[in-house]
Design a protein around this nucleic acid. Structure first.
Lengths: 196, 196
DNA sequence: ATGATCAGGTAAATATTGTTTACCTGATAC
DNA sequence: GTATCAGGTAAACAATATTTACCTGATCAT
């Protein structure tokens, strides 16, 4: 996940942060906790990261880099905007469900602070968002998706539903059936909740 | 919004917190900021609130109490589950759009900490959630809403979409057209995004 | 009328946590 | 063989959250 030969201390710090986020929230994790878990001194953390938040952003960035790598590959061979959407929905839920720390960071810990929106991590998030918007537009052009809604609202519906559905799992540490959740979300967003 | 004759200092503290949340995030607001803005001493804050977070929860609780008061009244005379849903969607977006501080607290600041889920504020949130679930079930019973989806997923779709749509407004301080947003959200969730 | 009690409030001490500084060490490059 | 530098430490320091001891005036039962 890292560039050319990361110093051992840095790696240990990053892993410590991940470990601690597994069952505690960001603000309750102290620098001294991180240092102790990593087995390094507190000062070293500031050698590699501007502050505690930037370390958090870095952890998120690593997840995102890893995920973005897979997504192009996963969409290869899938044809039709709706099929692509279904695939993206499944993948996204899978990530939240199997990477608790990732889910916690992005759903609960970063969005409240300004700096996040200037971080490299956020740049990757935007990249993913553009990808999704492109699929939606493609679907409108092809007629698969209705043309009378705004693409960005469609994105809100898809991601809002996914995130809301995964939130309880993150917060209360509940288990999720990925397939069932993906099925429900896809069905619901694509068809609406109204009888016809 | 408060019980019998709240002491002036307490009111000032609550108002100070609200004022500060208008354009800063929770973690960047210090106790000394709050005290200075309220024109009281730091110690007084701890006279009325266990800690900084509990003050935050209290502010949220006041908003929610106020909102819950209105909702029953607003739904009186609206018949049909779908119409009720449309109304609730409109009201919710209106709240987020016109009460920036409320939106910031609930969307960005509380859900990351365990204590929130034991707070009185959260109890009110649950109460509202139950109300929504009841409307959805009513719609299924009457046949207005399709019976082949899970009510709680329908709720995720409705609230997830609303929250996601309002998030950028909160974060980047953008203006929102309440009517247009409500229209888009309702249309989208009720009808789905798939062409037919 | 008086003094016990208590709510509302202050000021300063203390505890906790985040951040900075000065320095040490061994490998490598000149 | 020594200058430099990456990787690292330990301790000082700064910023914040929280606690403590205390003050004041109103109320109220004796």
């Amino acid at each position: 996940m890292e560039k050319k030969s990361t110093p051992p201390g840095k790696t240990k710090i990053i892993n410590a942060m991940r470990t601690l986020l597994e069952d505690r929230n960001f603000s309750s994790i102290t620098i001294s906790d991180i240092a102790a878990t990593a087995g390094v001194t507190e000062g070293l953390i500031y050698k590699y990261f501007k502050d505690k938040r930037q370390l958090l952003h870095h952890v998120l960035k690593e997840y995102y880099e890893y995920f973005l790598l897979g997504i192009d590959h996963d969409l290869k061979g899938v044809s039709g905007a709706l099929n692509k959407l279904r695939k993206v929905i499944w993948i996204s839920i899978d990530r939240y469900a199997t990477h608790r720390v990732f889910a916690r960071i992005i759903l609960l810990e970063v969005r409240n602070a300004e700096e996040y929106f200037h971080s490299e991590a956020y740049e990757l998030v935007r990249q993913f968002n553009r990808l999704l918007l492109d699929i939606i537009k493609e679907g409108m052009d092809s007629g698969e998706i209705r043309g009378d809604i705004s693409p960005s609202f469609a994105r809100h519906a898809i991601f809002g539903t996914i995130e809301h559905a995964c939130l309880n799992r993150v917060i209360f540490n509940e288990k999720v059936s990925i397939d069932e959740t993906a099925e429900q979300v896809s069905y619901l967003i694509l068809n609406g909740i109204k009888s016809r």
